[in-house]
């Protein structure tokens, strides 16, 4: 029990510190803290439609974080979720836009599958380069994010252009209403069911499958894993495929759900916030779900806050940044360790 208390404290204390630092800054800048707290509460939970908005943002964060948990457990550091989401959205949008009038029972699974496959393949590029050429995955996934963003910019201003949009917010035409999984609120039985299935799958993969066991061994003690005769390369490639598949699914759900279209420069911070979600969730699925709700609420509040209080939404970005900055730090009661060359 005290172990869980320690874990809870370890996660809660950096978050609390981030809020304290953020609120101190807000107070110093002359904002009314009571008003801000009220705005947070309203924007994330209390105001009509707020809870839906929190869940709407929790959905992609949770799904992406499942993939990130798998990679982090294998000891890999994939920061490419941002690009994989975009590719997932591209897959879903292409299928939905290129097969107009086809029966939804066919198109929706195909669109989801296309998103999953494109996301997985995009992630696998970095995986293959890492496994076979020893190329650093942090750099390559970072580069792939930029390439993906430019690719989507090209797609939305070229091949799949909607003539009514341009520039920073260029997008594809809207996906046919029949193919949508939710309306603009982004919350529906279908979407939640898909998230539940994804969570169960991820949990089984991590906690109950031979792959989960092997990947954890590869992550914690690669040398032992090698002595055991594990096929480390295959495990690494599978890890990247799975991570990309979950991120691609999240991207596909965005397009078939709340967004209805693929937008240039949409959700630029989602992939990054999902990393923080995975870590706050202590690399476990139930934890990640709870963390996704928390950060989904924060995201909903970011969009809501400027309406009710004078605090600009960037204020909450500061808190989000502080959480990420502090979350992996080991304070006072933890064993301090040097993590030179060691990732996470």
């Amino acid at each position: 029990m005290s172990r869980w208390l320690a874990i809870g404290l370890r996660v809660a204390s950096p978050i609390a510190l981030a809020f304290i630092l953020g609120f101190t800054l807000f107070a110093g800048a002359g904002y009314d803290i009571v008003e801000v707290v009220n705005g947070l509460w309203q924007g994330a939970i209390a105001a009509p439609g707020s809870l839906e908005q929190s869940i709407r943002w929790a959905i992609p964060l949770a799904v992406i974080s499942f993939g990130i948990i798998i990679t982090l457990r294998t000891g890999e550091f994939n920061i490419g979720a941002q690009g994989q989401i975009l590719l997932g959205g591209l897959g879903a949008a292409s299928v939905a836009l290129l097969l107009p009038g086809w029966p939804p029972v066919l198109v929706i699974p195909l669109a989801l599958l296309a998103g999953i496959i494109l996301g997985a393949l995009w992630s696998a590029i970095a995986g293959v380069l890492k496994v076979f050429f020893n190329a650093d995955e942090v750099i390559n996934t970072l580069m792939l994010n930029f390439i993906a963003a430019l690719l989507i910019q090209w797609v939305t201003t070229g091949p799949l252009k909607d003539d009514a949009t341009r520039g920073e917010t260029a997008s594809t035409p809207r996906v046919d209403r029949m193919f949508r999984l939710s309306d603009g609120t982004g919350v529906s039985i279908e979407l939640i069911l898909i998230v539940v299935v994804a969570a169960l799958l991820a949990w089984i993969i991590i906690e109950r499958s031979p792959f989960g066991l092997k990947s954890r061994l590869v992550g914690s003690s690669p040398r032992v894993a090698a002595w055991q005769g594990l096929q480390i390369k295959r495990i690494h490639i599978t890890t990247y495929l799975l991570a990309g598949a979950f991120a691609g699914l999240a991207g596909a759900l965005e397009v078939l759900g709340p967004s209805a279209r693929l937008v240039t420069g949409a959700t630029p911070t989602l992939g990054f916030t999902a990393i923080v979600v995975a870590i706050v969730g202590m690399l476990r699925i139930p934890g990640a779900l709870a963390a996704a709700l928390f950060f989904g609420g924060l995201q909903a509040a970011i969009l809501f806050l400027p309406i009710v209080s004078r605090l600009p939404s960037s204020g909450l970005r500061i808190i989000e940044g502080l959480v990420a900055l502090l979350i992996t730090a080991q304070f006072l009661w933890q064993r301090r360790r040097r993590n030179q060359g060691q990732k996470l």
């Binding site: 800054l25 800048a29 002359g30 904002y31 550091f77 920061i79 942090v138 911070t269 990054f272 990393i275 923080v276 870590i279 600009p312 960037s314 204020g315 909450l316 970005r317 500061i318 808190i319 989000e320 940044g321 502080l322 959480v323 990420a324 900055l325 502090l326 979350i327 992996t328 730090a329 080991q330 304070f331 301090r336 360790r337 040097r338 993590n339 990732k343 996470l344």
Partner: peptide, 29 residues
């Protein structure tokens, strides 16, 4: 270095903090 935080995650956090901080202070000041 002192608190053993992960350099990549903290680095990404630092960037988010600066993006948010610059926008916030531009607004506040």
């Amino acid at each position: 270095d002192r608190f053993g935080a992960d350099m990549i995650i903290s680095g990404l956090g630092l960037t988010t903090l600066c993006v948010g901080g610059a926008a916030f202070l531009m607004n506040a000041l």
